[in-house]
Computed example of a mutant assay.
Amino acid sequence: MNTEVFITCAVTGVGATTERSELVPVTPPQIADAAVEAAQAGAAVVHIHVRDPETGGPSRDPVLFREVVERVRSTNVDVVLNLTAGMGGDLVLGGVESPLPPNPEGTDMAGATERLAHVAELRPEICTLDCGTMNFAEGDYVMTNTPSMLREMARQVQALGVRPEIEIFDTGNLVFAKQLVAEGLVDEPVLVQLCMGIPYGAPDDPTTLLALVQQMPPAWVFSAFAIGRMQLPYVALAALVGGNVRVGLEDNIWLERGVKATNGMLVERAVTILEAMNARVLGPAEVRERLRLTKA
């Protein structure tokens, strides 16, 4: 069991959660406020996406990222910033009989440099690296991250001095993560996020989680989370198997049956669970020391 745990709060994501909860932040001021709220509740790290302020849909506009980051940094609240770099790998095929050309609605494919433009400008302590391609949910959508794309993104992130958080959605992703490390494209300490229960990746059962954990080198630092109703049980499970935890409205909008959550509520509940397990919740300064981060 991990008795010194840090909490990451994924404050908004880009999914259709805005249609199910009015508490999901959409605009840059709302996202920044949610990040600060999460930090004040006990999150050492905030994972940030941005959304189109008009539609609430996905965006990777560097201007929106800049506003969120500047707002968070302008407060006196200390928190480690983790910006997504997962956008720009969205491929929606044209259908089962005519997959090409891709469907322009939902397809957003960009080069490595463009996908990392906001990271290069804002230099967060951490950015994500989605370490694989997968059938993500239903229909004709494919989350697309080829080996050559991932190698180039890893090179650029390394050159920027930003710590990549390697997102693992299934066992093959972990194999490729080890390859990136072996090729010298990811520096120690290696930081991993195990993303469980996302269709059609690794299921969120304990056996699968343990299989992934047991394949990781002991020196790697990892967190694990699950989506929906399994998010809060995974706070306990992740700590029990030696990891850190992630909560937030990106992955789950409910605190309990019939009660919609805020990011702060979910972090507070995670703190309660961990402290009831006699685990100590780490602050941002301790996370920076553990991960060898330079405060942005």
Results as ranks from 00 to 15, higher is better:
103 N>R: 12
104 P>N: 07
108 D>S: 13
115 R>A: 07
117 A>G: 07
119 V>R: 03
122 L>T: 13
123 R>C: 03
125 E>C: 07
126 I>W: 00
127 C>Q: 05
128 T>Y: 02
130 D>R: 03
131 C>P: 06
133 T>C: 10
133 T>Y: 01
139 G>N: 14
139 G>H: 06
142 V>T: 12
144 T>D: 03
144 T>W: 09
144 T>C: 12
151 R>H: 09
151 R>W: 09
153 M>I: 10
155 R>H: 05
158 Q>H: 10
159 A>W: 02
162 V>Q: 04
163 R>P: 02
164 P>Q: 06
165 E>Y: 03
166 I>Q: 10
167 E>S: 13
168 I>E: 10
170 D>G: 04
170 D>H: 13
171 T>P: 00
173 N>L: 01
174 L>T: 06
177 A>L: 12
179 Q>I: 00
179 Q>G: 00
181 V>M: 01
184 G>I: 06
185 L>T: 12
185 L>N: 10
192 V>K: 14
196 M>N: 09
199 P>I: 09
201 G>R: 14
207 T>H: 12
208 T>S: 10
209 L>N: 12
211 A>S: 11
213 V>T: 01
214 Q>H: 12
214 Q>E: 15
214 Q>V: 00
216 M>D: 01
216 M>G: 03
217 P>A: 08
217 P>T: 02
217 P>Q: 12
218 P>F: 01
219 A>T: 10
221 V>R: 08
